[in-house]
Design a protein around this nucleic acid. Sequence first.
DNA 1: GTCTATACAATGATAGAC
DNA 2: GTCTATCATTGTATAGAC
Lengths: 218, 218
Amino acid sequence: MDSVEPDATIEVAPAEQDERTRGRLLRAAVGVFDRKGYAAASVREIVEMAGVTKPALYYHFGSKERLLTAVLEEAAREFARAMERGVRRPGTARERLFAICKDLHGLFQEHVPVVRVAHSVFFGPVEGAPQFDFTTFDRELERAVRQVVEDGQATGEIALSALPADVALVIMGVIGVFATRHLHNGREPLDLDTMRRVLGLVFDGAFGERRQQGEPRQ
Amino acid sequence: MDSVEPDATIEVAPAEQDERTRGRLLRAAVGVFDRKGYAAASVREIVEMAGVTKPALYYHFGSKERLLTAVLEEAAREFARAMERGVRRPGTARERLFAICKDLHGLFQEHVPVVRVAHSVFFGPVEGAPQFDFTTFDRELERAVRQVVEDGQATGEIALSALPADVALVIMGVIGVFATRHLHNGREPLDLDTMRRVLGLVFDGAFGERRQQGEPRQ
DNA sequence: GTCTATACAATGATAGAC
DNA sequence: GTCTATCATTGTATAGAC
């Protein structure tokens, strides 16, 4: 360790170096916040993991709290983009609802650490954590599902007796179960086949047609 | 404040005083753990809220971690009792499943702070928090729902094409949505009428009979 | 922009008197 | 069993050199 000379550092342009440090800090923060929790996470460990020093963190983010906010804002942007893609998809209501669930399932699976951090902050203590509006998550998801259900009712695919808000609740419940499964270490995640079967269960309740017992899928 | 004399303290038997201190500490701990989170909660504030001093806490529980464990163990016992009551209930599968959901909904609503603490620890960081087996919660709930579904299939009330495990997932999802609603401050809780409608949606998918569109309830 | 070195408050836990 | 007083450690954040 002692033999490593500082001049061995790869030279980069100042602007690149800047973005590099920010990125390293953000990624390190997600890791430490996830492992220790926001409150128990120390800036010491974060800068250590990022390979920078404390003043660098305070230069770029100002405080530990605003570092967390930056992490969450980036995650929120990505979530909103995925949500938008889901609603615009073509197909039957069934297909579109399954697509939304599948997309979110994949999105969560690919970003388990940051999702876990967001989850902890959302359901976490009111004092100590920064105020961050997570309700947009729920609201956007609910609005998307309701939109698809209403479209399905307009085409006659879904019975008018089912309240779109109720269907949205069930769908959000299913997404919640699947999401929380890979949120907690030690519980094996559920696969997409299971999701398809479970959603089929919900659809055959909310939708007009119904399979006979033992009848093959297609 | 200064004029309050120590001899104004109500005299109690030693054993009573003992239980009194333990109880005060447990209740204070739930409040502070809930408001600040386990990591950010200080033993100073806990003993202040309980009206005792630090050595009293360490005498009764040994550490902050074991105090949290004591809180969770008490909650786990109550949860297990409610779960057992739910499964033993008589009636149709529909009625029994609704009863389980309603009971849990009420139980969570009555104990929001401790449920929030348990939730945070379960989904919280792996380091720093004490190891506590929460998977029994999920497992007991899943086992209970599956049992009821299998009973319903045996009597012909529920179609054999529905996998009990899948139905359990949906039911757990619904319970999750309703529970998380009053877990987070600022979101209005859902009522029992909504729960009944939402479960009806699920049942009419999993169960054999199906209402015609627009047909009245009974 | 990034470093070394440090200020300063708060923490969990304990010793020892009563 | 409960107290007062205190310890060692760790926390966030900053001053000032480069």
